[in-house]
């Protein structure tokens, strides 16, 4: 029997993996993948909780919108990273440090 707890544990694991990918910042694309992991962890949570909200289905609707917005944000992010690659010939955030204190 799969309970709510299972969903929450899986989504917490996804969140931690995503957060690690973002904080390790080896590669800009890897950061985007990490962000996608975090968003999917949140979507999993929302759908799992939405099962108990039978009147408004707020969680399900929120999950749908989150998927769309994540896709839009990633599209813009990829375009910007491509632009950076043209200028720097690298997408490693550690090499791209013209702006700093």
């Amino acid at each position: 029997m799969i309970t709510l707890t299972h969903f929450l544990v899986v989504s917490a694991c996804l969140f931690c993996i995503g957060l690690y990918a973002v904080l390790a910042k080896r590669n800009a694309i890897m950061i985007l993948v990490g962000i996608e992991f975090i968003i999917n962890a949140a979507i999993l949570n929302l759908v799992a909780f939405g099962r108990y909200d039978k009147i408004n289905y707020g969680g399900q609707v929120f999950a749908l919108f989150a998927i769309v917005l994540a896709a839009a944000a990633v599209a813009v992010g990829l375009a910007i990273i491509l632009n950076v690659y043209r200028k720097y010939k690298s997408i490693n955030p550690d090499n791209i440090t013209d702006l700093r204190d």
Partner: peptide
């Protein structure tokens, strides 16, 4: 400008994702 945009987009998307969670 390219660097600023990349930092902004990555930092912003990460914050929005954490907020969603």
């Amino acid at each position: 400008q390219a660097e600023a945009a990349m930092k902004y987009a990555l930092f912003g998307s990460a914050c929005a994702a954490v907020m969603l969670y």
